[in-house]
Design a protein around this nucleic acid. Sequence first.
DNA 1: CCCTCTGTGCCATGTCACGGCACACCGTGC
DNA 2: GCACGGTGTGCCGTGACATGGCACAGAGGG
Lengths: 237, 237
Amino acid sequence: MQNVITALRVLEEVSARQPIGVGELARLLGLPKSTVQRSLRTLHEAGWIRPAGGEVTRWQVTSKALQVARRTELGLRDAAVPVMEELRQRTGETIHLMVPEGEAVVLIERLETDKPLRIVLPLGIRLPLHASANGKAVLAHLGRRPDELPAYTETTITDARALRAELEAVRARGYADNRGEWRADIAAVASAILGPDGAPIASLSVSTPASRMTEDLRGQYGKLVTQAAGTLTDSLG
Amino acid sequence: MQNVITALRVLEEVSARQPIGVGELARLLGLPKSTVQRSLRTLHEAGWIRPAGGEVTRWQVTSKALQVARRTELGLRDAAVPVMEELRQRTGETIHLMVPEGEAVVLIERLETDKPLRIVLPLGIRLPLHASANGKAVLAHLGRRPDELPAYTETTITDARALRAELEAVRARGYADNRGEWRADIAAVASAILGPDGAPIASLSVSTPASRMTEDLRGQYGKLVTQAAGTLTDSLG
DNA sequence: CCCTCTGTGCCATGTCACGGCACACCGTGC
DNA sequence: GCACGGTGTGCCGTGACATGGCACAGAGGG
């Protein structure tokens, strides 16, 4: 079903660059214009995109994707948001909710701090398992280990033995931390939300600029995030 | 591109009933099992669904849809959330952000009240233009009118002339209200967020159980929601 | 041991997606 | 004014590939 693959590629490209027209899409995707236009008509017919209005035909995605997306983690999100709000109130910092997916964790919800210097990550972003607080929190309760450990900064853990030891510490402590391992100026603490079978289904984190995260605060936030994740683990059981 | 249509139907069905298997899907969609399975394999290959794990193969959607969905109204959402938070703090009630789409308004973000009796609508839900506060707020700034005015409750406006008068009042007042016109026990006030050309691009609302919405509160919330929507209209200009 | 579920795999048929090409339109620049 | 580079759209012969019937493996249940 080659055409389905191309249609979905077109859809993703539209979502990334909307509003956008046939020609530009064809160039970006390296596909013949006819093929792209057929995909666009079909996606339109299926209700996933709509013309943006104006004399030249530009396309944008409809809320269909939102309807599909939100039915997914909806229960989790609904349960998590109140807990996240309390956590933000207590810490005053940005709270992230991420879920494991393949070789990464995906950001599905966030609450930002009101401080002027803040972490802002787009929803849907994927972070590496071994170089993010949420990733390590998840990894600590996961059987498998990442195959590769690419370095992002000087502090990224790239040694498998060191990672193993770190994950052991995470399990003992209840929460994972990140000391500029993905971006040098971002610090975070995170704790996993576990399903009834003990498998990690999500993770909560408190993220701050590295300059604000003192050792003292790291401990405080770590306790709070562990407690919040524990609440969610219990409420989902 | 019939197969794209069917593949997308399969995707939607998976998202609605996940985790779900081939056989049940085929029955629900009225399609041959082979066709459904080919669609599933293709969607999997494209990264939109994944096997749920377990001995029988069940499917669920990945975060791909979230990534596509969230790039859509992302700028709007990011601008709106802080304003929505302030609005919730001032009113203590549930705040909704909706965008017009076709003959409806679609819920793209919400902040819930902490009161025990609260309105909970799923993200992505579509409400009728003529029978919701957000719908009427949008309609008041839209050239076109709905073709049909189906009744949902006893107070739904079903007469075109009455609707016209109502929308005139909305424009004069700055906000629209809903007196149990969609669900008898839900009340709301809403105000439109306008683009630079004066066209409505979204709408903010405060929703409460009908039992809590006194005339006095309706006026207060109306002012607040109008002010919040105005802030967003300005900040997007 | 049959029967009915589940998911998966094969394959002949003929539909329909492919993609080259042409066209209409709109500016810009020589 | 004409060529040229853009835009979006439409047509159509070829052959790839989606279709869907059918068969099979395995798991429970009666």
